[in-house]
Design a protein around this nucleic acid. Structure first.
Ligand SMILES: [Zn+2]
Length: 349
DNA sequence: ATTTTCAAT
């Protein structure tokens, strides 16, 4: 009942993951900042809004007041009860439709190999869309149903399961700008990313290869194969020892131990293949297995580097659907690079 | 203010 009287602060956040015990990982819809909290203790969300987005915070307070007013009125409560079936049906229908829609968009994005970038842009716009202040209609059923989500009086209002990403390797020409900005940000920990992006450039000499080489990106989504392995399964499965390969990657994360070992094996088997990996972040760099894996990988001839600010700019212009927008690396990009570079140097020496 | 690491049907 207490949760029923609370306006949904979560309207301002994209839930990335919700575990048992109500633990929530989310990104602020306005700035993308990762916020962690519990469903029952949402002060982190409120505090973030208050400190970073004053206008949204004010809107939130206004909505909350309207909500309390509504719920304190017995008459309205009764009307909500009377309409409950219809309301919940409509609202879950709406949500289903929404999730089906976004699923469909994901589908198209998966199938898009090199066309219709406008769809991606549409999705991008949708992500950025802010909640509409439509509390002008106190009888508004959508609003009521939203506020009641999580109430779970009889299961009618239970939150839908978090929509999970597809189980496929996503391949594309250029990646979504907001994905790039979030996924490639060289913060210390990659929480909330839950996947790895890999931008690749392949140049092959000695054969009838395309003069400009091949480039694109991979995005792994818990397919069993990580992006690094998927690259050699999907992009460059074949090998001709009479050719010389130069493969350059820009990855959001350094390889895990298993991938590092697989890459080491591949480099040992493909003597004429040069692999350069530039990573935004180091993954679990304190783990001995990771350190050993990276070391072996470097010893097998792989050039391993952390991405510098200039590399982020290069990826933006080369691998991101940038629509001619310029890109300015975030404030602490250089600082974070130095932080990571020091750790990588330690590992590889 | 601090937390935080390529998720699981
Ligand atoms: Zn891996």
């Amino acid at each position: 009942m207490a949760s029923n009287s609370r306006v949904s602060i979560l309207d301002y956040f994209n839930i990335v993951f919700e575990g048992e015990n109500g633990k929530i990982e989310s990104n602020c819809k306005a700035c993308g900042t990762r916020i962690q909290a519990k469903r029952t203790v949402t002060s982190n969300f409120v505090t973030h809004l208050k400190r970073k987005h004053q206008a949204m915070y004010d809107e939130f307070l206004r909505k909350k007041d309207v909500k309390r007013e509504a719920y304190s009125s017995g008459a309205i409560l009764i009307s909500i009860m009377a309409d409950k079936k219809a309301t919940s049906r409509v609202s879950t229908g709406k949500r289903k439709e929404k999730s089906a829609e976004s699923k469909a968009e994901k589908e198209t994005e998966k199938k898009v190999e090199n066309n219709t970038e406008s769809d991606k842009q549409k999705e991008n716009d949708k992500v950025k869309k802010k909640p509409e202040p439509d509390e002008e209609k106190p009888k508004g059923n959508g609003e009521t149903a939203q506020g009641a989500q999580g109430g779970a009086e009889d299961g009618e209002f239970q939150l839908e399961p978090i929509e999970l990403p597809p189980f496929e390797i996503i391949v594309g020409d250029r990646l979504n700008p907001s994905f790039f900005k979030f996924q490639f940000k060289n913060v210390e920990y990659s929480s909330g990313r839950n996947k790895t992006f890999l931008c690749y450039q392949v140049d092959i000499k000695g054969g009838a290869a395309e003069p400009d080489g091949v480039r694109g990106y991979l995005e792994d989504e818990h397919t069993g194969a990580h992006a690094e392995e998927a690259f050699f399964q999907q992009v460059l499965p074949q090998y001709d020892k009479s050719l010389q390969y130069t493969v350059t990657w820009y990855t959001s994360s350094s390889p895990c131990a298993a991938c590092a070992n697989k890459l080491t094996e591949i480099l040992r088997a493909r003597k004429t293949l040069r692999l350069n990996i530039h990573c935004s972040r180091l993954f679990l760099w304190e783990e001995p297995e990771i350190q050993a894996g990276l070391k072996a990988l470097a010893k097998a001839g792989c050039k391993l580097r952390m991405m510098r600010p200039v590399d982020f700019t290069y990826v933006w212009s080369t691998f991101v659907e940038n629509e001619e927008d310029s890109f300015t690396p975030w404030e602490d990009c250089q600082e974070n690079y130095e932080y990571y570079d020091e750790k990588l140097t330690d590992i590889l020496q």
